[in-house]
Design a protein around this nucleic acid. Structure first.
Lengths: 339, 339
DNA sequence: GGTCGCATGACAAACGTTTGCTGAGCCGTG
DNA sequence: CACGGCTCAGCAAACGTTTGTCATGCGACC
């Protein structure tokens, strides 16, 4: 293992450790003669020298590590995001410290953020944002480098990389309208999350834009099947003549399936349903779910890139840049022209 | 933030830094008088002292960090495992450094392992094991603390926490036999992975134990839908009278669905199919998939626990303990009594 | 009352880097 | 020939801890 130390290399090359350090660092190599540099490099190679990153970090105050906070690793959504972040970071020599928090309360998030900061991460990528989020406010106040991903928060100048919810809902509604639907409802996600809130607002906007009645809305209190089922049930009971439902995410859509089935509506035939996110396996559910697909991996890549630009870029160019990536629509069997 | 240093605390309490250090560390606190200890603790609290973990690690040679190597974060399998590992580690004050490797070759794994070791992780949890795995061999040779999870390797004394594949396949076969099936086939996973290999062996063993012909086997070269589809196709073509298929994992099972449908067999009616892993959404596919459920979260918890016991336990009690956790069977609509 | 021992806390070294400063040597120029 | 400047490399401090060793002072025992 990396047992050889810088001092060893220096001795082997017959120079002072500081000289070895400069020779090894490409940025400072020019200050050392080509001959000694070569000698040091050779020695380092021969001894299989690996710098002690902790010692370096202690000295330089940079750990080349970023922390990521995930609200729920088990949600398949985050796999691709993590993969994207990881890939982009690795590319710049950074590592990723991931922490999960089941059903995170603000205190939980606060706690894991503390452990990350204690570990001296250079920056933070947060996937846990709420529309009102004191933890993120605090981070920004303490001016730690932070970028949000997938969800955002309100009234705080902070970078974020998101899916374009407005465009996404537009895709779903336009698709349904083109199929000939007019009476379209919405099962919204939690209004405390930027995604739930934005998708709902966009639903209303697009419906009005199409000259349709946007009032058939019910909110699921969580992005899960059961809450989706309950919300869809009351939505359908209040609006029995609904031709289609735009669900705020795929799990909610599956809840809609059940509610529809219970009421004798055949999904994809006598009622159309769209999902959101297009998580894996949605092509295998019955009927296959038409869903708005978000480029999650790219979300991760861009979020990492944004953070890196803050970290390595010119100081205080920390404008709160936000990126919205365009979704696409995966059309499947759950949507069809109205009978 | 944690700007106060130990020296600051010491000064505030009117003692030497070393005394402050001992007072702050519960293990050494006894060596300091109760009065000074109290004074130091108060000062620390007042200054919001947070120890500099890097400095500590540099001195103590322990980072309280473990690294985890995942072959593919996007596979929903690993979510629960990661969550379990994280939970158990956090419980002991450890953090988790996760690295992903898309379709890992040995070199890729080697590379990410290097970055983890460079970051001085105290131990490693590997989910990437192959039956023949030079990387793991190397780690063991260099006596770094490592525990395998989900998959294992052969001929290397190393701890591992696995699902009990033999029991799992037994559950599937017994279920099918009890339903009345006799002509049962197997679509195996890659023989280079311990899971693929073990499940196949267990299939043969259980079939023979039940007095049935165990020769209808085809191997999918990867745990994915398409390879599963191809293998199932040729399996069904070679054995048109098969009544049931035991698939080596859920994705392969979905491939079997397609192959069966193409041949006019209705899954859950004229042919029964079982999956393995019971990843999310298998209850929503059509027909809902009967699948062997593995306690993945517990796999993670136990793996972390095993590693921790190696790390904090008595030195050189590093017997290569292996744990096999018992699966259960989620019976759904894809299996039924033969026509 | 003297010596021993123990409890307490200070001192300093060490972990492995990076980096500002200093100084030696050399070459060229006036 | 002297001096200025430039290139190169060494010295030492610093990052914030932990911990072995040592000095001090006190009480207790004989």
């Amino acid at each position: 293992m990396g047992r050889a130390t810088l001092k060893d290399v220096a001795e082997a090359a017959g120079v002072h450790p500081s000289t070895a350090s400069r020779a090894l660092n490409p940025a400072t190599r020019s200050v050392v003669s080509a001959k000694t540099a070569a000698r040091v490099l050779a020695a380092a190679q021969r001894l299989e020298y690996q710098p002690h990153l902790l010692a370096r970090s202690l000295r330089t105050n940079r750990t080349m590590t970023v922390g990521m906070v995930i609200p729920d690793v088990e949600n398949p959504l985050f796999g691709p995001i993590i993969a994207g972040v990881e890939e982009r970071l690795a590319n710049d020599g950074f590592s990723l410290l991931i922490t999960n928090t089941q059903q995170p309360s603000d205190e939980d998030v606060e706690a894991v953020v503390r452990t990350l900061i204690d570990r001296r991460v250079d920056g933070l990528i947060m996937a846990t944002a709420h529309r009102q989020d004191p933890v993120i406010q605090e981070l920004v106040d303490e001016s730690v480098a932070v970028v949000l991903v997938n969800r955002t928060t309100e009234g705080i100048p902070v970078g974020a990389v998101l899916g374009d919810d407005h465009a996404g809902i537009g895709l779903a509604i336009n698709h349904l309208v083109e199929l000939g639907h007019r009476r379209i409802g919405h099962v919204a996600g939690p209004a405390t999350l930027s995604t739930g809130f934005a998708r709902r607002q966009s639903f209303v906007a697009w419906m009005q834009g199409a000259g349709l009645d946007p009032t058939a809305i019910e909110e699921a209190d969580w992005y899960q099947v059961d809450p989706g089922y309950r919300a869809a049930s009351s939505l359908l009971d209040r609006n029995p003549d609904l031709q289609a439902i735009v669900a705020a995410n795929d799990l909610i859509a599956l809840g809609c399936y059940r509610a529809a089935a219970e009421r004798g509506r055949r999904v994809g035939e006598s009622i159309s349903i769209t999902g959101y996110n297009d998580v894996p396996f949605m092509e295998f559910v019955q009927p296959a779910l038409t869903s708005v697909r978000i480029p999650y991996r790219r979300l991760g890549v861009e979020a990492a890139g944004l953070l890196l630009s803050v970290l390595t870029g010119p100081t205080e160019d920390r404008r709160a840049v936000s990126l919205r990536l365009p979704p696409t629509l995966a059309v499947r069997a759950s949507t069809s022209a109205p009978g």
